[in-house]
């Protein structure tokens, strides 16, 4: 049963559409420190769906642009490099979001959770690395893609999974693994790998619930993503069935030397960012209305 499942799940991963070429092109253009603004504008404008999404987001208080942005050129000029990368990435990724029945998640709830994790990852990366880690923002936005794939299988085995979680002290991840032979983090990692994302992102997603299982010396990204995810779940920023059924790894405190108080301060910052990023969060509903 389990083997058949895994096979069906893997086939479903193969059917996931390619990662938006426009987003990849924008990343490529930006790799050159002397990239041409015109080239960037041309690449973005070629993609109407992404352009529309960018214009919806660019006046968000989160990006701190003081003047009205009404076209792609303005966005590229006024948002700055780091923000334009984020905006383009978010604009391209929304298309993968849909209602996920197994976890009882609406597309909007999963997207809001993902944006919150991306924003919190940035807050934590600033603290841990003393700088931004752009890849973490992307990883935050797609860290639960595995749920979109796994949803229907979780739905079919809901009784069994909830039984393990409610009565046998399994985490939701462990229950997925016991019943389905894989878990949503692993599947998410495979999606990222199919999309040819750097190994660091693939690992961060694969281990976002159990960074302690990674090899020693691996990057801190999975730990940051983990902590961001836990913070969001604790604050109710997920509508999923799995809720808070995940393991708390206490060693993270000494790993990052973050105390309770500082952690709580970061949570306050997250809610400030979320309030400023409404346009980003509303993107998924807006996308579906079209």
């Amino acid at each position: 049963m389990t083997m058949i499942n895994v096979d069906r799940i893997l086939k479903k991963i193969d059917r996931i559409p390619a990662f938006p070429a426009t987003v990849r092109k924008v990343w490529d253009v930006m790799k050159d420190p002397d990239y041409s603004m015109n080239e960037l504008v041309t690449v973005i404008e070629y993609d109407q769906a992404i352009t529309a999404n960018i214009l919806k987001m660019s006046n968000s208080a989160y990006f701190g642009v003081r003047r009205k942005v009404s076209n792609v050129r303005d966005a590229v000029i006024y948002l700055g490099q780091a923000n334009i990368a984020r905006v383009v990435t978010a604009a391209g990724i929304t298309r993968f979001y849909k209602d996920v029945k197994g976890y009882r998640l609406t597309a909007k709830a999963l997207w809001e959770h993902s944006v919150a994790v991306a924003l919190m990852s940035k807050i934590l990366a600033d603290r841990v690395y003393g700088r931004e880690e752009p890849m973490l923002f992307t990883a935050g936005l797609i860290h639960d893609m595995g749920k979109i794939i796994l949803g229907e299988f979780v739905f079919d085995s809901m009784q069994e999974i909830m039984n393990l979680v409610s009565h046998q002290n399994y985490s939701f991840l462990e229950a997925e693994e016991e019943v389905l032979g894989t878990n949503h983090a692993e599947i998410g990692g495979r999606v990222a790998s199919n999309w040819n994302f750097p190994q660091e992102i693939v690992d961060a997603i694969t281990y976002h619930h159990r960074p302690d299982l990674m090899a020693e010396g691996d990057s801190a990204n999975a730990w940051i993503l983990y902590l961001a995810d836990q913070a969001c779940m604790m604050m109710g920023l997920t509508g999923g069935m799995d809720e808070l059924s995940y393991r708390g790894l206490g060693m993270i405190m000494s790993k990052f030397s973050i105390g309770h108080r500082e952690f709580e301060e970061k949570i306050v910052s997250l809610f400030e960012d979320l309030a400023n990023a409404r346009e980003l969060i509303n993107l998924v509903d807006a996308t579906r209305e079209k």
């Binding site: 985490s171 604790m234 808070l244 995940y246 393991r247 708390g248 790894l249 206490g250 309770h260």
Partner: peptide, 16 residues
Amino acid sequence: GASILDDAEFFRIGQK
């Protein structure tokens, strides 16, 4: 005031 599993000290915001 819910908590994640294992109630690791670090995540005890619910209990607090």
